[in-house]
């Protein structure tokens, strides 16, 4: 079944902008990447680089005044047919069967991702009823099963509880259960562990890996935590200001980063071998607001290797810099 040559999801030149009175914010500005069946793609970047908007664009749930202005998001469905999600209408039947059915989504806010006035069960059962032809009783059993499969103890009791009665870790597990209840082939996890403490983070990551092995599901893992990516991902996409600046296999990216931004990111994590009390290098400056995007390479004002007269004038294209990897930087002609 595993067919690594044909991507499950193929994003091409995606552009999503927010049209406000102050001006247009290009949240995602020409991102391209592929997600392969059964593999994990890590999308890394600082806050505001367009990671979450990319996820919302794939499901077509970008909030107004945001809108996809260009690009393709091609999903290969279970029967082998391909659909371009960008061409579907945002509230159409087709896209709604993709949401929750083909693609499940989990968020970083387990606290507020559940309705405060509905039980966890109501929200799982609703999803099951929507995507499969079963009765209420069967849907409830499946809901309990989904809760059990993510390691929630006493699922037949927990299903009638409200999200605020669960601990943070259980809540995120319940969130995963909702996303998995209809057997999606792709799970988009948007910062799934950010709001959790470190022990719970490890448990949730283990759970995701276990589920992936059991079901052969693809995961698109959005995070700013490089440790999580190193542990989980097969392929990595590094985003900066709505653009993909580097992509490749996880080992290549971590052991031999090409783009100065990726290098800087990796240098700013503490290593177990580093001298104690040594100040970690930081990336100078701060992320410009996407509204005030710098001319040329978006990273040049903060880049240590910026070439004056080139990087601040022209925009480097994303091009191959080795076997199966790409980067957008003039250092690699």
């Amino acid at each position: 079944m595993r067919n690594d040559t044909r991507p499950l999801l193929s994003v091409r030149n995606l552009r999503t902008s927010f049209f406000q009175d102050e001006g247009t914010t290009k949240a995602v500005d020409g991102a391209s990447f592929d997600v392969f069946p059964g593999k994990t793609l890590g999308i890394v970047g600082e806050s505001g680089c367009g990671k979450s908007v990319t996820a919302q664009s794939i499901l077509r749930i970008v909030d107004r005044p945001g809108r996809i202005v260009d690009g393709e998001i091609v999903l290969t469905r279970a029967d082998g047919s391909e659909i371009d999600l960008v061409k579907l209408k945002a509230n159409s039947r087709e896209i709604r069967s993709v949401r929750g059915g083909d693609i499940g989504l989990i968020f970083q806010e387990p606290m507020t991702s559940f309705s405060p006035v509905h039980t966890v069960g109501e929200q799982i059962i609703e999803a099951v009823l929507l995507h499969s032809e079963v009765g209420k009783k069967e849907a409830r059993l499946r809901g309990i099963e989904a809760l059990r499969s993510v390691g929630i103890p006493k699922p037949e009791r927990r299903i009638d509880e409200y999200s605020f009665e669960l601990s943070g870790g259980l809540r995120q597990r319940a969130m995963i259960a909702v996303a998995l209840s209809c057997n999606p082939r792709l799970l988009i996890a948007d910062e799934p562990t950010t709001a959790l403490d470190v022990t719970t983070q490890a448990q949730i990551l283990d759970l995701l890996r276990k589920i992936q092995q059991e079901r052969g599901m693809a995961i698109m893992l959005i995070t700013h935590n490089l440790g999580v990516v190193a542990e989980m991902a097969d392929d990595v996409v590094v985003m900066y200001l709505g653009k993909v600046v580097e992509q490749g296999k996880v080992d290549d990216i971590f052991h031999d980063p090409k783009h100065p931004y990726t290098k800087a990111l990796l240098q700013s994590i503490p290593s177990i071998d580093s001298t104690p009390r040594l100040k970690l290098p930081t990336i100078s400056g701060s992320i410009p607001h996407p509204f005030n995007r710098p001319k040329g390479c978006p990273f040049h004002p903060r880049c240590v290797s910026a070439i004056a007269g080139r990087c601040d004038v022209e925009e480097p294209p994303l091009q191959a810099v080795g076997e199966g990897r790409k980067a957008s930087c003039f250092l690699y002609p």
Binding site: Q56, R96, G100, L105, T112
Partner: peptide, 20 residues
């Protein structure tokens, strides 16, 4: 966020808004 998660489950816009 619970509105967006409801949408991500595939509910129609009308049901998302009225129910949650």
């Amino acid at each position: 966020p619970y509105v967006m998660t409801a949408r991500a489950r595939g509910l129609s816009e009308y049901r998302v808004i009225m129910r949650y």
